[in-house]
Design a protein around this nucleic acid. Sequence first.
DNA 1: TTGTAGGCGTTATCAA
DNA 2: TTGATAACGCCTACAA
Lengths: 333, 333
Amino acid sequence: MTIRDVARAAGVSVATASRALNQSGLVAAGTRATVRAAAERLHYSPHAGARSLITSRTHTIGVLLPDLYGEFFSEVIRGIDQRVQQAGYHCLISSARHGGPSLEAALRAMRGRVDGVVLMSPEFTGELSQRTLPAGFPVVLLNSAPTQLPHPSLTIANFEGSRAMVRHLAGLGHRRIALIRGAEGNFDAAERRRGYRAALAEAGLPPAPELEIPGDFSEAAGVAGARALLELPAPPTAIFAANDGMAIGALFALRDAGRRVPEDIAIGGFDDIPMARYVEPSLTSVHVDISALGERAATRLLALLEGRSEPDVSRETLPTTLVVRRSCGAPQR
Amino acid sequence: MTIRDVARAAGVSVATASRALNQSGLVAAGTRATVRAAAERLHYSPHAGARSLITSRTHTIGVLLPDLYGEFFSEVIRGIDQRVQQAGYHCLISSARHGGPSLEAALRAMRGRVDGVVLMSPEFTGELSQRTLPAGFPVVLLNSAPTQLPHPSLTIANFEGSRAMVRHLAGLGHRRIALIRGAEGNFDAAERRRGYRAALAEAGLPPAPELEIPGDFSEAAGVAGARALLELPAPPTAIFAANDGMAIGALFALRDAGRRVPEDIAIGGFDDIPMARYVEPSLTSVHVDISALGERAATRLLALLEGRSEPDVSRETLPTTLVVRRSCGAPQR
DNA sequence: TTGTAGGCGTTATCAA
DNA sequence: TTGATAACGCCTACAA
């Protein structure tokens, strides 16, 4: 079932059939109708590969993520797909997780399959880019550290969100506010710590290195972190965990240790995962609209593809909002 | 950067270059090395579209889901991608959600881009299949009702899982066990109800139509369902909700109504979403390994693609396991 | 063991 | 307004 069949059925040449099927060119209204009818009747749909060969557009964008696990990624994908679909594009998903194919291989494998790529990976460097991607290949970076790379990049307001959280805790009267940090070397984690420190400084609270506990975004790290904090000669009265997973871990650890939340210790998290509403007490967190992040990334990439935007390498930050629930002890509503 | 460039750089013909790059054909070890080196140096990677034109394989599989929202879908995708990636394939994701393009359009748009498709949609009929897909096009159905369609299909053990749950509740001494049903017309929902009824019958409990409350898998339906049940002249002592979302809704409704769970009323859910562990009391549920479902679907599809399997249209059911937590009041451990 | 040449399904160019 | 025909990049007979 190729365009030849359609052409034959409509009694025209393939060239005319092609013109009639696409918007392009001048075709008599009558012939166009005949061709369209034939295509419909034959259930014709063009072969994407062949078309991309000549147009050198695939109408597909690649989405390369470090993993496909968890709500963050599913939401990103949802946002991207939604945006991309309404533009008539497709989504080729791939994860370059540890143990799987390298980022380079994954990127390379996408060649000829996608017109551009939304990329989330700390490993992506200029050197790699140059080695792997054709010059000028459209790329949008997601949640990456600021780079010199000539690509637009999107992040969420890690710094501002954390600062708002810690400011809120300080506003409730807490003087000893601990931080359970995110993964070492992670850009989000670093930014969240920066926000934490900034808020402390603003509130006139002295930096207290012993209140900063390393973590890795896992629930277990939250448990361990909270336990460590309780061991301190002067334990904190509030804990800010760099993500909700660790915050929930901390919640459990405190409960096990017989501490009441928020009466004895307040807790705040980051991400506002759905579960935050359900834990007991419900978790104060920093809300992030992840599907909007994906949608925005797709929009930027499409703009690049359509050549509508200048090589705009600006960095864009999506806002976050503090969601106050019971775990921080603030008066509700 | 095409194979011509590589050939030229290696001082051979494109045919030889092609042979050297693929496993195929007899090539002198020396020339193979030269060609490979040239390809490496030039960062050559073949154009997928062109290749698919001649081989008529894309090494890509389509994944068509009703939506991309929530953990179920992200886990399915993860399972599929994992399996497919290790076979050197790619994943083209698409959702045929309401308001978006129709299933037919989505399916049609995949032509020439994928070698086969993992499909989850209640709307997929033989008629549609015939109209949209080339005869013999590889399809694997996910969580669909049994059909006459000549495609392998995969489901989870809805019936068995529900039966195990209700059997468990009956075993704890409950005589009045209610069901909050899943969405009308949904195959999973129907199967879960069938399991519920079967377990009641096995336990010698009389069917009690007033204990079957309609629902739609939403948390709100769980709230409404639980309230309705409490209004009954003889309320149930246990509630089985057809999914965890509704079970959690019911949990909240009971708490609001001043009922203790599990002391006054026991609750069980289905799916074992991550949140089930975190609600208070933790929720007894039926565990489903969703990424395994995706992985299995991918495996079946790949078998079809590689022609390794006969046109095996068998229906495969993935087991579920009952996870007992506190909400049902069973002794722990 | 290697090279030549044809063709996969489309669109684009150029004549008619 | 239409039709031949030449690409696009690749693979694979077939010939050398």
